[in-house]
Design a binder for these strands. Structure first.
Length: 351
DNA sequence: CAATCGTGGCT
DNA sequence: TAGCCAAGATT
């Protein structure tokens, strides 16, 4: 690839970033660990959402060591509400590996840092360029959008193989004096100027070198095909209280959706199936009385599926063995357990 | 490679 | 309202 405005583009971008960059918590440190944490939290997550989580997380876990050996329940509680919970587990595993195998020094090369759990091509490049000033690419959605417009690249950014094209482009363009500012400049430009819809081209520091701007093509780029359809799943949720006014809760499996998060017992509603029987069999608890059959009904939309929840408040008594991943907990104990947003909605209606 | 994995804001 | 989208990684 030969882009004749390479020098100007690079300089204008970096100068714009240094002048206009947002004052964000992770931009006030050069600690590779803290930058790593920020990059993981920012995966598929908005800046405004991350800020309070980032501050609380680093107050609790200011060092690699403090995170490496934190109890998983406590860690997930810190991550509660952020989503993509495997990020927290992978981050801790990666941090632990750095402590034990790299003498608490985050690797400064792509080969080693990429082996750490949860560190993919983007995060590796981000940490290396920002914390270690290495000229490494860090291609995210912003970067692909910005560069698809500047260079008028019409490849489908929904396809995995397309990312390689942009990584090569960044390798060609990146500023070796200020690699971190260059990468963050592309991302900030994508976030503030070169937005998905109605980009603010009149404010863009590199519009003179942008092919899409010259062609008036901005709204057609980037090209992105894939669209996912979400399936619906209906659940009957039993908010079950025993004679001590403790609530029955269970911990989800350690793999898959909402891994290791706690929830109220729920039974998938299928045709010709008695949910109440299922509940009794599975949780070894008999429903003595239905206190409120319409405690709460709501819909929760995940990225690839939708839960339709119908919650009942019931009084139960134990009649046989309870599953090993379940137990009865007081309201105060519930508050310490990590729970997903839909489950918190249920907790919030309990008085 | 395509599907999976959360949540909240925006259009 | 319903879909789209955001500083991706894993399987």
């Amino acid at each position: 690839m030969n882009y004749k405005y390479k020098e100007q583009f690079r300089q204008n971008l970096v100068e714009w970033f240094q002048r206009e960059k947002r004052d964000l918590p992770w931009r006030r440190t050069s600690d590779p660990y803290k930058i790593w944490v920020s990059e993981v939290m920012l995966q598929q997550t908005r800046v405004d959402t991350v800020i309070p989580y980032y501050n609380r997380f680093l107050e609790k876990y200011p060092t690699l060591e403090s995170l490496a050996y934190a109890p998983q329940e406590e860690l997930l509680k810190m991550w509660e509400g952020l989503g993509y919970y495997s990020r927290a587990r992978n981050l801790q595993a990666g941090v632990k590996e750095v402590v034990e195998k790299y003498n608490s020094v985050v690797p400064d090369n792509r080969h080693d840092i990429s082996k750490l759990k949860g560190v993919g091509p983007y995060t590796a490049g981000a940490v290396l360029s920002i914390a270690y000033k290495k000229p490494e690419h860090a291609v995210d959605g912003n970067v692909m959008r910005v560069l698809s417009r500047v260079l008028h690249i019409e490849e489908d950014i929904a396809l995995p193989k397309t990312k390689k094209v942009f990584e090569e482009v960044v390798e060609m363009l990146i500023d070796h004096e200020h690699p971190g500012d260059f990468n963050q400049g592309l991302m900030d430009l994508g976030a503030m100027i070169c937005t998905p819809t109605s980009p603010k081209c009149l404010l863009c520091p590199v519009r003179d070198y942008c092919i899409a701007f010259h062609e008036g093509d901005m709204d057609k780029l980037p090209i992105k095909t894939k669209k996912t359809k979400t399936k619906k799943v209906q659940y009957k949720v039993y908010v079950a209280i025993n004679s001590d006014d403790h609530y029955l809760l269970e911990k989800r499996p350690s793999e898959g959706l909402l891994a290791d998060m706690w929830q109220f017992p729920m039974i998938e509603i299928k045709d010709d199936m008695n949910s109440e029987e299922q509940f009794t069999t599975h949780y070894g608890s008999r429903i003595k009385k239905v206190l409120n059959n319409t405690l709460l009904s709501f819909k929760h939309i995940f990225s690839h599926l939708t839960w339709e929840m119908e919650c009942s408040l019931v009084k139960v008594e134990l009649i046989s063995e309870i599953p090993s991943n379940a137990g009865f907990y007081s309201k105060d104990e519930i508050k310490k357990l990590p729970m997903s947003v839909p489950m918190q909605k249920i907790v919030n209606v309990l008085n």
